[in-house]
């Protein structure tokens, strides 16, 4: 029997959907090995996050609400999460493989003397965890041989869990992050302002590459607007300053698997494919017919994006009336 503790991800008090993808993994784990799961909500003024987690079948929702936890400082969050796991006897700690999860969870693992598997996409019959390695060219099955286990979950590999009803007791956890934040100071956060859906949550993603140059926004935004899509980018488009870092999709950026993915003026390097090749339908628009992106695309169009994309936008708009 396992007790799984799930680190909830939120953005200034609003629950993020990746938490529910992570929950889907936790439910699979519990179905296989037996046991129950609790949520951990860390932060400051995060009551609404705990409330949003009601109805998802957790044994309890633990809330560590403290000014020292307002920003996800890894040393502090890692410590409090480990202290909480110890105090409730959790042997498995899971969280999304977001930048916060990647930053925090290894520190928790050390405090729990736990082995950690990163970015897992499934489990094998023998209880190994599957994870992409070598930019997703191979899948590694890894065993964690310690009694305690820490796992970060690739959200795009699990459908968001549904609510099952009922209520879970909300339990405050008196955290002691103090010392762990002594040598780290949060200075600032320069956030990308957007009214579009989150890349990790969007059903449609319009991604642009270096080929769009300084017209990156002019080409991708109108199409994203008509489709209610999130905007993504290749690394080259970000490196060249056409798109913010938060847009990067790939081995070292975000991993997405939307219903529909547009790769516009993106060549299709392995590192980019690593972040999008599990999308349901892939459309590639590129002026060069030989690019590797066409090898993974369901629909390929050889065309100048500056002409084709505005036309595509207009036709979809017309269809939707």
């Amino acid at each position: 029997m396992s007790k799984v503790l799930i680190l909830a991800e939120h953005d200034k008090g609003a629950l993020k959907k990746v938490t529910l993808n992570t929950l889907a993994f936790a439910r699979q784990y519990v179905a296989k090995f037996g046991g129950s799961y609790d949520f951990a909500v860390l932060g400051h003024n995060v009551g609404a996050v705990a409330t949003a987690l009601q109805g998802f079948g957790a044994g309890a929702i633990h809330v560590a609400d403290h000014a020292d936890l307002a920003h996800p400082i890894a040393s502090a969050w890692g410590k409090v999460l480990a202290d909480l796991a110890k105090s409730i006897g959790a042997d498995v700690v899971v969280g999304p493989a977001s930048t916060t999860g990647k930053d925090v969870l290894p520190r928790t693992a050390v405090r729990l003397s736990a082995g950690m598997a990163s970015d897992i996409i499934g489990m094998t019959d023998t209880g190994a965890f599957s994870r992409p390695m070598w930019a997703g060219n191979l899948t590694g099955n890894v065993k964690i041989s310690t009694a305690n286990k820490v796992i970060s979950v690739r959200a795009s590999a699990f459908d968001a869990a549904e609510a099952t009803g009922g209520s879970s007791p909300i339990q405050p956890f008196a955290s002691d992050a103090g010392l762990a934040t002594a040598r780290v100071k949060f200075v600032s956060f320069d956030g990308v302002q957007s009214t579009r859906p989150d890349l990790a949550e969007a059903a449609v993603v319009v991604a642009g590459g270096r080929g769009l140059k300084d017209r990156f926004g002019a080409i991708t935004e109108p199409l994203a607007d008509v489709l209610g899509a999130a905007i993504g980018a290749s690394r080259a488009a970000v490196d060249d300053g056409f798109a913010p870092n938060d847009y990067q999709i790939g081995q070292t950026g975000k991993v997405v698997a939307p219903q529909l993915y547009f790769a516009i003026a993106i060549s299709g390097a392995v590192q980019h494919l690593a972040g999008m090749k599990n999308s349901k339908v892939i459309v590639a628009i590129n002026k060069n017919a030989d690019e590797p992106i066409f090898k993974v695309a369901d629909y390929g169009l050889v065309a100048d994006a500056f002409v084709a994309v505005p036309e595509l936008t207009a036709q979809i708009k017309a269809l939707r009336g």
């Binding site: 598997a117 899948t139 099955n141 890894v142 090749k277 993974v296």
Partner: peptide, 17 residues
């Protein structure tokens, strides 16, 4: 603490039309 017990090749995607 963590051992790779096996590697597999993920099923590839076929090019479409």
């Amino acid at each position: 603490k963590v051992q790779v017990v096996g590697l597999t090749t993920p099923s590839g995607r076929k090019a479409g039309v």
